[in-house]
Design a protein around this nucleic acid. Structure first.
Lengths: 236, 236
DNA sequence: TTCATCTTTACAAACTTTTTATGAACCCTT
DNA sequence: AAGGGTTCATAAAAAGTTTGTAAAGATGAA
């Protein structure tokens, strides 16, 4: 993202494409459009935009498949446009790695806000990844490189999945993470229904990090929703 | 709403119209009147008022039909005036998208207060919805992402349905929400008759957010109609 | 094979939601 | 003003899910 951020719009409705192009250009973005998923993917490969906005319903390669192909080669932020009532598909798109979705009809201002948000997210965090391989947060100290972990100063041994789960928790401290989110992050989009996995792994992790696994102070459960992690033991 | 807010009054009683026009003008509103729904709709289309006040019983196109037609083309706030005992019709009007109702006879001061409230609502919230995951409103602070809620600074724990209910209330502060509307929003269209659900959940929510659940200051009940939520404790 | 890890299964405990019941509050009619 | 009928508030039981946990089976690497 040297100069103006570059945005690729993939949509087969010329009318909507025109509106988007105009709106985005007026805000200083460099915009290119493609009329279907196939053209979109090619445009991505030779233009390397900073963000992709794509419709779901399209001829040739649809939005879902476009997400899949893009995610195979890039972490570029993707915003999916979808008609009302395609809930299932939306979920699928997000699980495939789309960053955000907007339901049609939408206001151009809302879309612009989401574009700003996505670009901001894409720019801020990545620098950390390169520099720091150490997470130091509350009672936890994690070396991502050597995969060593200490809790309250005590070194502990975690299996690979347990390690990934804990790191994910630490990176999202304080937030409620839904079962789907966790499963998608750790097992992939095809396992978002496998709540049993989570139950077992959260249980095992608790045994290793909680002073008393029966009354968790770090990994708190939000019934019917998911889990919430705190880097400092919670009073109850 | 560039200069003075514009208010369209639709009513077939010249006497009432005169009172309203005088009262509203003296508070700095720009007022126009129409004598029936048909004239009202035409006036709306060529004047684009910021708020519509309409009676229910009218010749030609009645208040209900006017609500329907307005909602088909606009989100303008609508305040419905109704004679006592038209409960059913009021409910219908609210379900059609009216924002508030006032039962005749009423004091001009009450009406003015509701006008101010409706105009305030129409201007402030809508921008938030898209971008921010935080609702900050009166005595309530809600983070939709972490699902943390505080009331008057105190953190509280809500079950999923309670959480959804409170969020819905906050997003529609000040408006009368019919039982049907709430049930449809939270339980889905197949449960719009299950008033018992609402009673129980509103009761539980009150226990958690009201200083004294026996005299509610936030979730007020509108007998025979539904509930109305206020983000600041109401004096009674 | 052996070992460590991940997956699957099963069941009791915990929690939320739904259902039921009862008395109070409210509106309308007489 | 009194009575009938409806709705509302509240508590508590019942039902239905989800969660915690242990343990057995499966998988794969050394």
């Amino acid at each position: 993202m040297t100069d103006q951020p570059r945005i690729l719009v993939v949509d087969d409705e010329p009318q909507l494409t025109r509106v988007l192009r105009t709106g985005l250009k007026s805000r200083g973005y460099d915009v290119r459009a493609a009329a279907d998923g196939l053209a979109g993917f090619e445009a991505f490969n030779d233009w390397h935009p900073d963000l992709v906005i794509t419709d779901l319903a399209m001829p040739n390669v649809d939005g879902l498949e476009l997400c899949r192909r893009l995610r195979a080669v890039s972490q570029v932020p993707i915003i999916v446009l979808s008609a009302k009532g395609e809930e299932k598909t939306k979920v699928e798109a997000l699980d495939l790695g789309a960053d955000d979705f907007v339901t049609k009809p939408f206001g151009i201002d809302e879309l612009l806000a989401r574009v700003r948000a996505s670009l901001r997210r894409a720019n801020a965090p990545p620098m950390n990844e390169a520099t720091s391989t150490i997470l130091d947060s509350g009672d936890f100290h994690v070396d991502l490189e050597t995969r060593e972990i200490t809790v309250r100063g005590q070194p502990i041994h975690l299996t690979p999945k347990e390690f990934d789960l804990l790191v994910y928790f630490i990176k999202h401290s304080g937030k409620v993470l839904t079962h789907r989110t966790l499963l998608a992050a750790l097992w992939g989009g095809n396992y978002v229904e496998q709540n049993e996995y989570l139950r077992v792994f959260v249980g095992n992790l608790r045994k290793k990090i909680e002073p008393d696994a029966a009354t968790p102070r770090y990994i708190l459960t939000e019934p019917w929703i998911g889990y919430r992690f705190h880097e400092k033991a919670q009073e109850i």
